[in-house]
């Protein structure tokens, strides 16, 4: 991909007390690219994603989204820039006291200041895209995990983000529900969305990822195409990890 970079992680460092969790990470994600991140538990994958929208405050380094540094600017600027960075969590985190439709319109109304009509129309579009429009009036508690996750994706998409970050989006799902969420993500990729996905779904990575990044101990150990990483990993640590997860 020769496209311009949509997300640049520059020399990102994160410390929790005495522990350095991310050690000067550099990662560029091009427009429309899907980067798939793997690595053992505790290697810092979630922390890296969470630093990308400053849910976790980086200790040092820069996060540049479509040319703008989200580490610069005021709290207001941060709220505005977060609109451009969609985030999907392992635990969905839909708002349980609101209908599906309200879940998808809330930030459109309050942060983007769209009118109710605009927000509703956009929400229905997005819910259709993830196959959940028929549940617009349901409450999250009435949905399966897979359905909740698709609504959560629609909630992010409705804000027209430039990048979508997924932190183990299918890890909390029953196996038979995983496919519906992965399909939505695949559609998204084919529509040209820039995506960073932390996941254990290697099959999805082989099919959909442009690049696979292997992290361990807070550094990027190795990266390459799915074929390179899964077929012929160079680093010993990558090989050890892959043989462990493929059982």
């Amino acid at each position: 991909m020769a496209n311009r970079p949509m997300l640049e992680i520059v020399s990102l460092e994160k410390r929790f007390g005495p522990n350095t969790i991310l050690k000067k990470i550099d990662l560029k994600v091009a427009e429309g690219e899907l980067v798939f991140v793997i690595g053992p538990s505790g290697s810092g994958k979630s922390t890296m994603l969470r630093c990308c929208n400053r849910l976790e405050e980086p200790t040092s380094g820069d996060i540049i989204v479509d040319g703008r540094n989200i580490m610069a600017g005021t709290r207001r600027d941060l709220d505005r820039m977060r609109l451009q960075i969609g985030m999907v969590f392992q635990g969905f985190h839909l708002y349980p006291h609101m209908t599906v439709l309200k879940n998808v319109t809330l930030a459109q109304r309050k942060a983007l200041k769209r009118t109710k009509a605009e927000a509703d129309a956009r929400a229905i579009d997005m819910l259709e895209q993830v196959g959940m429009a028929h549940k617009a009036d349901a409450y999250p508690g009435e949905l399966s995990g897979g359905q909740q996750q698709r609504v959560a994706i629609a909630r992010s998409l409705a804000l027209d983000p430039k990048v979508m970050l997924f932190d183990e989006p299918t890890s909390a799902l029953d196996p038979e529900l995983v496919g519906s969420v992965l399909k939505v993500m695949k559609d998204l990729k084919s529509k040209g969305m820039t995506m960073v996905v932390v996941s254990h779904e290697m099959g999805f990575a082989r099919e959909t990822a442009d690049r696979v990044v292997f992290m361990d101990g807070g550094v990027v150990v190795e990266q390459g195409t799915p074929d390179e990483i899964f077929g012929a990993p160079k680093a010993e640590r990558t090989r050890a990890f892959l043989s462990r997860v493929s059982g």
């Binding site: 969609g86 985190h93 839909l94 708002y95 930030a107 309050k110 942060a111 804000l159």
Partner: peptide, 27 residues
């Protein structure tokens, strides 16, 4: 109220006050 509620709301660009009023306080 689960911490994830704060994080989800703020990741969609809601300010801390908006998050409190619309998401956290009602729950």
């Amino acid at each position: 109220v689960a911490k994830g509620q704060w994080e989800a709301a703020q990741s969609t660009g809601l300010s801390p006050t908006q998050t409190l009023i619309h998401v956290v306080l009602p729950q």
